[in-house]
Amino acid sequence: MLLAPLSAEAQGKLRIATYNTELSRDGPGLLLRDIVSGQDEQVEAVAQVIATIQPDVILLQNIDYDHDLMALNALRERIAVHGHRMLRTYMRPPNTGIATGFDMNGDGHVELPKDAQSYGEFEGQGGMAILSRFEVQETTVQDFSCVLWQDVPGALLPEIEHGPFPSKEALAVQRLSSTGHWIVPINTESGPIHLLAFHAGPPVFDGPEDRNGRRNHDEIVFWRHVMDGTMGEGTEPFVVLGNSNLDPLDGDGRKEAIHSLITDPRLQDPRPRRQLLAQRIEGQLGDPNLHTVAWPLDGPGHKRVSYVLPDSSLSVLASGVYWPREDSLAGEIAAKASRHRLVWVDVAWD
């Protein structure tokens, strides 16, 4: 089985990765229970995948938040058991499950999880986290997770015939971020690098007002506002990374959003690929070797939704999507871990 080259900052590389782990559970504390048991097959598979790729820094999505980061630290220890140690952690509460007190989806009812800031059965479900070999400069993190959607330049706010959807009052409290938008400085031995981290909501599960599609669009385009200087402060060098929930060619959603990001001249798209050629899926336009998620073919299908986009000042050395042969042991572990696949990029760093 072919593996990605091991990370080695001493050799002038910095390996940066993103991974939608799908480790979220149905209630608070359940993820921690599963991790510390050492017996949960999905948890162990996620830890094995990360240990195989050995990132220097990785953004995780769909991992539940708790106030003492006990689940995240427990996962870090399981990764270490499988051979890769990352000493630093960073996590903030996501917008999932936060009650608003308003009817946010226009169904005439006010109840969780559909009327939270973002869909969630409880506060903290399905958050984002960072694991790093290097210090996270927490005091200078820029957290945009509380930015109101209506305050974003050019926001595509949903409307219906009689006015804002679902109501003017609901939009007045609606945050842009489904999970979060962070700029996180990582202090490596060779200098700082900034992670522009996010996990956008899906552009589906709504009505003709296209509330979710519009929000997904603006969550992705938000990073262009940051690069323009209209949101946040300048941070170089940087890497935009996370799960956009949007493929540039296939599936639902406003594809111009992700297309505008991956073609922005201030960024570079390494187009990470799996190492073994994949068969083209009938009816799809995109290159299957770029796909990062294996949703059911009779449903959403395989898509490219996770991205690692270094800024144009950085030199990209290598990249990949960790997608081993599905009939191999490594492939079985990757599939057991998550429907999503880990995406990594090596940049020159010395």
Rank of each mutant, 00 (worst) to 15 (best):
A10I: 09
G12L: 13
A17W: 01
N20C: 06
T21A: 06
E22G: 03
L23W: 12
G27F: 14
L30I: 14
R33N: 12
D40Q: 12
E41A: 15
V43F: 07
E44G: 07
A51F: 03
A51M: 04
I53N: 04
L59I: 05
Q61I: 01
N62W: 00
N62Q: 14
I63L: 13
D64W: 10
D64P: 10
D66W: 04
D68R: 11
L72P: 05
N73F: 14
L75Y: 09
R78C: 02
A80T: 10
V81D: 08
V81A: 05
H82R: 02
H84P: 00
R85E: 00
M86Y: 00
M86R: 00
L87I: 00
L87G: 02
Y90W: 14
I98A: 10
A99D: 13
T100N: 04
G101W: 02
G101M: 03
F102D: 04
M104A: 05
M104G: 07
G106V: 08
G108T: 04
G108Q: 06
L112D: 07
P113R: 02
K114D: 15
D115W: 09
A116D: 04
Y119K: 06
Y119W: 13
E121T: 13
E123P: 13
G124N: 06
Q125K: 11
Q125D: 12
Q125M: 13
